[in-house]
Design a protein around this nucleic acid. Structure first.
Lengths: 187, 187
DNA sequence: CAGGCTGTGTGACCTACGTCACTTATATGG
DNA sequence: CCATATAAGTGACGTAGGTCACACAGCCTG
C-alpha cells in the first residue's frame, strides 16, 4: 500500500475528513527514507518534525551520562515518533531517534501540525486522541515498571509486539525493559 | 478565588474562549467536595468523570495482587485526575483515586467533554494540550525510573513539588517513587 | 581466508533495595 | 485523657539484577 492510503486509513480510525481535507492535510507531509542505523533525531539538535512510520522500525531512546541507552519506544508502521518534549516546547533534543531497519516515514513539522489543527477541527480531534492513547500507554508502562520484575515485563513486551523478537537485537530489548543485556539473556 | 475563576484562568493559559463560550463550558462542570480519606474512584467501578482539583490533594494509584500500592500521580490544585484508561475506553476502573486531604473538585463527564470538544474547537485544543503535557511528563518519569536510583528520584520529586513534603505521609511518597517505606526512610 | 565487528551466553562477585521484625513517636477519636 | 491507629526509624538478612570478564558464533569487508 502506498503512503497516502496508509495515512488516510490511520487517520480515518479516529477522525472523519473529507477527501479534499485529507488531500490538503497530506500535502503537508514530506516523504523520507532512511537506512538501517541512520539517525533521524540526535540529542542536542533542534527538532522540527514528528515522523509517521510507513515501513520499517525506529527506536526513540535516551543516552545517560554513563553512555547507557534507555529505549522509550519502538516505532512500528503507523506509529509516530519524535522527541515530543523538544518538539512541543521548542527546545533542543534530549531524545534520539534511530533506524533499527531501513525505514520509510512521513514527516510533519510542528508548525504545520499546529496550522492544520487550527484550520481543521477534525485534525485537532485526531491529534488529541493520538496523544490520549500515548498517555494511557505510558502510564501503563510506568505501572508495569513499578509492579513487575524483568521477566514479567519481557513476556508482556513479547505479547504486545511479537514481531519485535525477530527484528530487534536482544540488547535493544534489554534497553527497553530497563535491564542489562546479561540479565535479559538469563531469563 | 472561586471555582469559576480558577478554571477560567487555567484554560486561558492554552485556549482562548469568549466569556459566553466559557460560561457554556463551565455549566457542564459539577462542583463537588470530599473529605480526607474519601474515595472518588474505586477499582472495579465504572468511571464517568474526570476531576479538576480546586483545592486539596488527590492521589491516583493502583493496588496489585499483593495489595501493594503504586501511586501514579498526586493531583494538586489545577491538576486533573481520573482513571483515564477506563474513562476513555469505557471500561471498569483499574486505578483508584482517593483524597489525601479535604478536597474540592470540578467534575466533567466523559460525554460532556466529548460534546464540548466537538462543539467548540478551542476546547478540543485545550484538551489536546493538556494530554500532550501529561504524555511528556509520563515519558520523563519513565526515563527517570530507568535511569536514576531511589535517592535521585526522591530529590527530583521534592524539587518538583516542594509542598508535597509537608502534606503527604512518607509511605505515599515511597509508593510514588516505587520503593519500600523502609528504603525511603533510609535515604 | 584472516581479522574485525556485533550479537549472545555464562560464571563470579557486588550492591541497591525488599522483607520482616521490633521500637518509638504522633495523631485522632471515643 | 487514655486507647488505638497511623507514621516513621532501624537492624538483620535475602535476592534481583548490575558489572566485569571471558568465550564463541555469525557476519561483513579487505
Amino acid at each position: 500500500m502506498e503512503a497516502r492510503e496508509i495515512l488516510k486509513q490511520h487517520i480515518a480510525k479516529t477522525a472523519s475528513l473529507t477527501d479534499e481535507q485529507f488531500d490538503y492535510v497530506f500535502s503537508h507531509f514530506k516523504s523520507q527514507s532512511y537506512k538501517k542505523g541512520q539517525s533521524i533525531i540526535t540529542a542536542g539538535d533542534s527538532v522540527n518534525c514528528e515522523y509517521f512510520v510507513l515501513s520499517g522500525c525506529l527506536k526513540s531512546f535516551f543516552i545517560n551520562d554513563d553512555l547507557k541507552m534507555f529505549i522509550l519506544q519502538f516505532a512500528m508502521p503507523t506509529w509516530w515518533a519524535s522527541d515530543f518534549n523538544a518538539l512541543y516546547s521548542n527546545t533542543k533534543a534530549t531524545i534520539n531517534v534511530d533506524c533499527i531497519t531501513d525505514t520509510d516515514v512521513l514527516c510533519l513539522s510542528n508548525a504545520d501540525r499546529e496550522k492544520l489543527c487550527s484550520e481543521i477541527h477534525q485534525v485537532e480531534h485526531f491529534f488529541r486522541w493520538r496523544t490520549n492513547k500515548g498517555y494511557v500507554a505510558a502510564q501503563k508502562r510506568l505501572l508495569s515498571f513499578m509492579n513487575n520484575d524483568a521477566k514479567h515485563r519481557y513476556e508482556e513486551l513479547l505479547k504486545l509486539y511479537p514481531q519485535l523478537y525477530n527484528i530487534v537485537p536482544k540488547n535493544l530489548i534489554a534497553a527497553y525493559l530497563g535491564v542489562s543485556r546479561e540479565t535479559l539473556s538469563r531469563l
